[in-house]
Amino acid sequence: MKTARQLLQEKSRQAIFSVPPNATVYQALQLMAEKDIGAVLVMEKDKLLGIFSERDYARKVVLQGKTSAGTPISDIMTKRVIFAQPSQTTDECMAIMSEKRFRHLPVMDGDTVLGVLSITDLVREQIAEQQFMIAQLENYIHG
């Protein structure tokens, strides 16, 4: 079973996408659309301040009648960011995301953001592990 660090190293897109806290929701949405991602970190220099997701947009902007262009991301971002340690397994990361009901999990080593794992990353890894196990069992049986 792989760790969060190993999975991040294997990702084809390893860049960390972020916006500063004074960015508008519209600017964050532009970045998310451009990079085809569902969440963006809110950072000041290298310090993680929050995370903003499509769910935040739907619940904290649209439903509250705010405007994307006039709302600073710092007003609606999720400030209490739950994250994984690099040594945590993919199963542990999946459990965190399932329990807390979100789809993007930053991986942090101390105060340093190493990357973000999505639920898609974890599901792909789980499928790959299962396929490997099936192949090993088939080889054993057919020997």
Rank of each mutant, 00 (worst) to 15 (best):
P72C: 08
P86S: 02
I76E: 05
M77S: 11
M94T: 12
T89E: 05
S74T: 11
A84D: 02
C93D: 02
P86Q: 04
M97N: 13
I96W: 10
V62I: 15
T67K: 07
R80W: 06
E92F: 02
Q88C: 06
T78D: 08
R80I: 09
T71F: 14
P72R: 15
D91L: 10
F83G: 01
A69E: 15
V62K: 08
M77P: 01
S87I: 04
Q88M: 06
M77D: 08
K79L: 08
I73Y: 07
I73F: 07
Y57S: 01
L63N: 12
I82P: 00
A69S: 14
G70D: 15
C93Y: 00
A58Y: 09
Q64E: 15
M97F: 09
Q85H: 10
K66F: 12
A58V: 09
P86N: 04
Y57F: 15
M94E: 03
S87D: 10
P72Y: 14
A69G: 05
V81M: 11
L63D: 07
M77I: 02
F83V: 01
G70W: 00
P72A: 14
M94C: 01
V81T: 07
S68C: 13
K79S: 10
F83M: 03
V61G: 00
L63Y: 12
K66W: 10
K60H: 04
M77A: 00
M77W: 03
A58D: 03
I73P: 04
P86F: 00
A58H: 09
F83R: 00
R80N: 13
T78P: 06
